[in-house]
Design a protein around this nucleic acid. Sequence first.
DNA 1: CTCCTCAAAGATAATCATTCTCCTTTAAGA
DNA 2: TCTTAAAGGAGAATGATTATCTTTGAGGAG
Lengths: 146, 146
Amino acid sequence: MSDYSSIEALRSKGLKVTPQRIAVFEAVLKRKNHPTAIEISEYIKKEHPHISVGTVYKVLDLLVEKGLLKKVKSEKEVMRYDAFTSPHHHLYDSESDRIMDFEDPELDRILRDYFSRKNIEGFRIKDISLQIIGEFHQKNNKKISV
Amino acid sequence: MSDYSSIEALRSKGLKVTPQRIAVFEAVLKRKNHPTAIEISEYIKKEHPHISVGTVYKVLDLLVEKGLLKKVKSEKEVMRYDAFTSPHHHLYDSESDRIMDFEDPELDRILRDYFSRKNIEGFRIKDISLQIIGEFHQKNNKKISV
DNA sequence: CTCCTCAAAGATAATCATTCTCCTTTAAGA
DNA sequence: TCTTAAAGGAGAATGATTATCTTTGAGGAG
């Protein structure tokens, strides 16, 4: 509980150290299976029954912003659809919710080579796609394909 | 409108051909920018003001299931959190909502090499992560790292 | 071509994650 | 210790998605 290192981590980012922040941060550190905000909230209720879900969300956002945690999956919770054409990857603008396609047969070949060499035991691959997160630094609306 | 090929596509999958299905499918084909279900719903309202959102969701799910469309981003809409450690990728079980880590320095090196060679104009990369979708064929709960 | 039947669609309520609002509390520097 | 802006609490609001339940219509049988 209240591991010294998590307090240090918060302080190193110039954040106010509160019991809520310590609890949320340590919950994510402790749990290995990519917990959701709700799961984290349930988990810390055992020790701190008074911490509200809203606070958990706020703390998580803050910790992601400061680089102490990482969000897995979408930046936005919305599902998007794509006509099934050739395999391609996606560029995500971290500043907006813009998504663009990226396709390159060479990349696909490289990945195919790698994964046929490197077998993942107990797992059969059906599809691979890259999320390339970054920033567009010019207005660009056409499909990118190299 | 009611492009012959979309009707053919539906029929080839053994699906009942309805105006709603044609409208939704063609909307996704026509729009290039990864529309959300809501956007599709708005879009087809111009031509078919009576099609309900529920129907749009049902049709999209069906088309994804039949392989005519693809979902971009998360299988579930939930956000998950991860302590920020070394860069790693994720294995998604298509049968459940299980997510596991996958890390391999060699893969990271390959990707780094590729992207430093292949510059994407107008885009500055901040992070890259692979979504590897497939099926676990054994009960496996430990972190996979090759 | 008409009729039948079951799958599909419509309308709307319910659910669930997430965000917002607004009031109260508290960390931490003076 | 005191002050104050930042943080937290409670719960309402929002927005996407799903469920329910009734009505409609696609498409095969005759």
